[in-house]
């Protein structure tokens, strides 16, 4: 059935199509250029990224090195769960973290029922949207993005890109070597729904909370934005 449907559909499309050569089509697409992106909310990348993460209802922390990051994670886990346990993918960058320094007990693998927190190390952070980028694979099973109650994401400051176009450039470059991953995820906030009378509720199906830790030499002003935003919650 599908075979004849396919040929019938394609023959109809060919009738309406322009019959251009692949070369001409590609040339025409190139001539259309790229889409404009919105201006960032601050000139400095870290600050702009943090502001957009906050706008997406994420919470943010900054850590200048890996020990500080582990301490920030321990602090977050204890504040919310009175526990130091979490699940993380088999990401070499996560395996190399000094977990013991702060007593955090990671389990490496895919999130299972009853485990409330997962940690991901983002491939990129997109300043434009305040989104983090992960893709599926051993380093970050999809379940870790979508099944936990709280999703903690580490983003290296050096992995921030200004726009989605720049993110795709990096993705294309990276997957040239590794092959195309099954799923590529731009995540911008906790799971949400406004399906009941327009009331916004977090934790529709995925995480109720989304916590981003920006790792590296984050400028003081950007750190202040993150700190100020976390004050009323603590």
């Amino acid at each position: 059935m599908s075979g004849s449907a396919r040929s019938e559909i394609f023959s109809r499309l060919r009738e309406t199509g322009r019959g251009e050569t692949a070369e001409n089509i590609q040339r025409e697409r190139l001539s259309l250029g790229s889409a404009p992106a919105p201006a960032p909310p601050a000139p400095e990348m870290c600050q702009a990224f943090i502001l957009n993460v906050l706008k997406n209802q994420g919470s943010v922390d900054c850590a200048s090195n890996r020990s500080e990051a582990v301490r920030a994670i321990a602090h977050y886990l204890y504040a919310h769960f009175h526990s130091y346990r979490l699940v993380a993918g088999n990401d070499p960058r996560l395996a190399a973290m000094p977990w013991r320094d702060a007593g955090v007990l990671p389990r490496f693998g895919s999130l299972q029922a009853g485990e409330p927190v997962a940690l991901s190390f983002a491939r990129l952070g997109v300043v434009e949207t305040g989104a983090i980028l992960t893709w599926t694979g051993k380093a970050n099973p999809a379940a870790n993005n979508f099944l936990p109650e709280h999703h903690i994401v580490l983003v290296d400051k050096n992995d921030l890109v200004p726009t989605m176009e720049k993110a795709w450039e990096k993705i294309h470059h990276a997957v040239e070597k590794t092959g195309r991953p099954r799923g590529i995820h731009f995540i911008a906030g906790p799971s949400s729904t406004a399906d009941i009378e327009g009331d916004l509720v977090y934790g529709a199906h995925g995480p109720q909370r989304w916590h981003v830790i920006l790792l590296g030499d984050v400028p003081g002003d950007a750190q202040n934005v993150a700190r100020d935003a976390s004050k009323p919650q603590s």
């Binding site: 706008k55 997406n56 949207t129 051993k138 099973p141 099954r182 731009f186």
Partner: peptide
């Protein structure tokens, strides 16, 4: 500015997934 999840799917499980 972006919905919470914008996902791109390419196919079945890859080796090692």
């Amino acid at each position: 500015p972006q919905s919470c999840y914008t996902s791109f799917y390419s196919g079945p499980r890859r080796e090692g997934d």
